[in-house]
Design a protein around this nucleic acid. Sequence first.
RNA 1: GGGUCGGUGCCCGAGUGGUUAAUGGGGGCGGACUGUAAAUCCGCUGGCUCUGCCUACGUUGGUUCAAAUCCAACCCGGCCCA
Length: 408
Amino acid sequence: MADLFPAGSGAGACSDPDQQLAARLEEAERAGRPLRIKLGIDPTGSDIHLGHSLLFRKLRAFQDAGHIAVLIIGDFTARIGDPTGKSATRVQLSAAAVEANAATYLQQLGQGQDPERALLDFETPGRLEVRRNSEWLTGLDLPQVIELLGISTVGQMLAKEDFSNRYGSGAPISLHEFLYPLLQGYDSVQVQADLELGGTDQKFNVAMGRDLQRHFGQRPQFGMLLPILPGLDGVQKMSKSLGNTVGLAEDPLSMYSKLEKVPDAVVDDYLTLLTDLDMADLPQNPRERQKLMALEITQARHGGPAAAAAQVDAAKLVAGAAGSGAAAAEVPEASLAAVNFPAKAFYLLSAVGLCASSSEARRQIQGGGVKLDGEKLADPNQEFAGPEVLAGKVLQLGKKTFRRLVAG
RNA sequence: GGGUCGGUGCCCGAGUGGUUAAUGGGGGCGGACUGUAAAUCCGCUGGCUCUGCCUACGUUGGUUCAAAUCCAACCCGGCCCA
């Protein structure tokens, strides 16, 4: 299933990619030296989602086969921003934000967590190296930067689709963005990667790594490019900025119910890329298939019982039995401690975080989208005297969003 | 550096002195409906414990009873030239 990417931009015919990878694996075996498998992530967001997780699954497979996962936290490059797939220059992040994101990433990948559910193997000695690219990028001096810049050409950069689109449409391209592929490639040099994992959209950057390694006298890495996971909309790639993601940190119910609604066209992609199920024994009925997919993926993250409960609860929510009973058990809690009483209904909604603003809350109530313990709230100005009249009740926005109110 | 065009709400994009919180589309949210979704129809889509008040059309000043709309300076971007 993996799209193997060998040979790169070098002249001449490339031989069969599979054989090349096989050759490297064999060679490693013979020499008793595990391969160094590079995977870089830029801590630009706060959460890892399923679109990332297929890369980590592959990385884990290499770990399990005895190779070394070299996880590169792009704490330096994150501050430049990968231009890939971007139609505009990305805003630069602060060092503190990047550091916080990096910590969350590691935690979500399973550092310090139950090894059963961890995405990567943090336990077995020698199977994981976590490196930050600020380690070597911060110290580059100008002559070194110039050397890097000399390795590529403007023509090559403009051949990259994202740049040429932007250039063609008159959108701005900052010069420092050209540095991104070079720095990512330089990471490969620094960690002496034998193989780099990435999405197919990383082809340019991975190829650049090969060029740089060759320039610095190393054997060019093998590029293994995996398919891009479609997002929940079934059309665009899964991406935080498109809002079509399922985050690894999400609770079982959210995770399950999002997955259960994915368009039929991508259900099989999810099954192939995110589960180990054998496609041959799956139910033919599309709805059944979809539910099984959602259950399986939720289970991998949260365990069997939690996933099963989420499936039951999701069904209840859809049936309209929401807001009370068993489904409510999974509902996130919201504290009333910060609410000033007496509280009007619209203010309560925003104070508790169900709505982004009190004005929005007012509109939602007027639009008939808010329920308290299953009963529709009609008047945005309805007053609640104190926490005791609300504690334990479930506040609901639309069909899918709930908060169980708790005192204190 | 010179010339020129432009910077409007989440995004795109109207509006060139006065019912303008600002047309329209997209997206989003809510409602109805359906096997989830999709499609369709309807409503909402600045903020504030809100019968009112407050901020908004790159920034800062200015002209005017009145400015997103006029003027000035500045900032940012596209294109052409250097």
